[in-house]
Design a protein around this nucleic acid. Structure first.
Lengths: 190, 190
DNA sequence: CCAAAACATTTACATTTGTTGAGGAATTGA
DNA sequence: TCAATTCCTCAACAAATGTAAATGTTTTGG
């Protein structure tokens, strides 16, 4: 539990009441490797803070190709946010790539807290600013402009430890290329 | 001015005080086609609500290739957000593709208002949720997975009026392809 | 209105990436 | 442990996209 609020406070300081209120909606859970936290087609309601382990958020095309959008390692908040916000079935599945223990909470309960406690609203704003804006802007350019080799180098540079934990085909799926192409890239960079 | 607050209220209802406070930091300005609202390398501070006209936000690579990340037509809020948030030089330029009239305000003055007035914080949250999460999630998948022809079709489908206003090379730049390739795609789809 | 600049298309060739299928290595779960 | 499964790499060929250069059209600013 401490690790949770310690992480929260990297976004903004929390009052004691806010902490207590948030604590009240937290539940500890574990997911075995291969388990889904969110399943495509269902309307999700929960956010999972990853204490230990690793989730991926992925889309499966009609042809069965898997495209990974994001990895959620330790201390990240995993959720299919746009599905919750629009209360529609999720286009993504969130899967445990490793045995994963989390602290879960109901997103709408959280939203209510954010309307009640200004510091929780501030957390939410700061979280979105960092992870949905600051981190995504360069990525959007790279996806349009950079060849996969360059995107791999950038990913490896930013998340060296993740690279070691991931299967190659997961990395390929995140880069939007086939395992074949990733093999070629790794050959070239050797 | 009315069109501004009318748009705001599509995100959340605003109290009279909030409106007055926000109104106080608004300035009307115009940009001729080709003018920059934000220039790469500078630390921007302002947000521009587009009343009439069209901006593009683009990145220029070291080789001089232009990659367009977003278009800001009427009633959108144009800004290089991550540069402002992190108070670093912008990696993007925001340019007027047409003669454009805007209502500008200082982003940090706005942030202060959002800490003071809960309804302005709610606007900011709702705005980010819609434009940075709900709209971006499918795009991120498409950029990784869909060939340019399919991305063109999706763009044309979602913004039919924009397609007519834009030069082909701007559309190509938004899709992350060359004008040559866009020509081929348009040939095929004919 | 007109000359200059910007834009769009096409062709030929190069590069990147995808597809399919095969073989061997690593991993896993009973 | 060990058989089954999953994973990785590689080869050969196919498709998508990039590059460069030529040409004709459109737009634009004076």
């Amino acid at each position: 539990m401490d690790v949770f609020f310690k992480k929260i406070e990297t976004y903004t300081k929390l009052s004691a009441e806010s902490r207590t209120a948030w604590e009240a909606i937290l539940t500890a859970k574990t997911y075995k490797r291969g388990d889904n936290f969110v399943t495509e087609g269902q309307a999700p309601k929960k956010v999972a803070f990853v204490v230990k382990g690793l989730f991926s958020q992925n889309y499966v095309s009609d042809k069965g190709e898997v495209v990974i959008k994001t990895f959620f390692p330790e201390q990240r908040f995993a959720a299919s946010v746009s599905a919750m916000l629009s209360k529609t079935p999720s286009m993504f599945t969130i899967t445990a790539l490793e045995d994963t223990s989390v602290l879960e909470y109901d997103f709408f309960a959280f939203k209510k807290l954010s309307e009640q406690y200004m510091d929780i609203a501030t957390f939410y704003i700061n979280y979105m600013e960092l992870h949905w804006i600051i981190e995504k802007e360069p990525l959007e350019i790279a996806l349009r402009h950079d060849p996969a080799g360059k995107r791999y180098a950038a990913f490896a540079d930013k998340f060296p430890s993740l690279i070691k934990r991931l299967k190659k085909h997961h990395i390929a799926s995140y880069l939007g290329i086939t395992p074949t192409q990733l093999s070629r890239i790794l050959l070239t960079n050797k």
